[in-house]
Nucleic acid binder design. Structure first.
Lengths: 114, 114
DNA sequence: CAAGGTACCTTGCATTACAAGGTAAGTTGG
DNA sequence: CCAACTTACCTTGTAATGCAAGGTACCTTG
């Protein structure tokens, strides 16, 4: 609200902040998951580093986009399983459409060049 | 030199650095232009601010991607008309294909989520 | 000569992705 | 039991960079 989030609608912000956040939101919209798994998936897909995910998850939690529960495993330390909140789902839809717009704009400039 | 640029091939870097650079390269691949015009075009298309273009053009020039010539006008101060160098053209092709890959990867993650 | 548009540029701030490094839980082999 | 390995969590410091704010200078018009 009101968050003076700097005018968060600028596409520029989406470019930097959005693409990774968008991917995390997309993954969580399908099933709950934990940071390590998300980062492994996104490491392959878009080259995300592991040390990027933890600050990102905390930021998203702080913004109320995700929540988590702890779960034990038989394969190592316990996991924090994250799920989207309502706000997270809304954010996902918003980011997705902004991504589409951005992509279209860039493709319009790039693809056009004969 | 030569890029010790940190491992510049990571797609992550392209995400931030690439999209704007890519757009500038694309515009210049079609016709020579000057910073103010480029930034006006990209302001509309992707929300780029004017104060972003000047450092960017200097960086690109320093990397040997663009060169410029001065031209007088009858409508204001003289313009620096930029054109792509050979390296700039090569970079454009490279960035363009990385953009395509990135876009495909993100769409694979995002679009899939039905 | 003042106002307004064009076109150039710099400084400082905030954001953030990542490398490097660290903690801890469980498994496997000697 | 202890060392090595994997999974899984996390923190700190560095470098990059987009932008707001502010500034300079040229040219035209009234």
């Amino acid at each position: 609200m009101n968050d003076s989030t700097t005018g968060s609608d600028s596409i520029q912000v989406q470019l930097k902040k959005g693409a990774l956040e968008l991917c995390v939101l997309a993954l969580l919209s399908r099933k709950e998951s934990y940071a390590y798994e998300i980062s492994s998936t996104l490491a392959e897909a878009v080259g995300m580093g592991e040390s990027t995910i933890y600050p990102l998850m905390r930021r998203m939690q702080k913004e109320g986009l995700v929540q988590f529960r702890l779960a034990e495993t038989s394969t190592g330390p316990s996991r924090k399983y994250y799920t989207l909140t309502h706000a997270g789902r809304r954010r996902f839809e918003k980011q997705r459409s902004e991504w589409t717009n951005f992509m279209t704009a860039v493709n319009g400039i790039v693809g056009d060049s004969q």
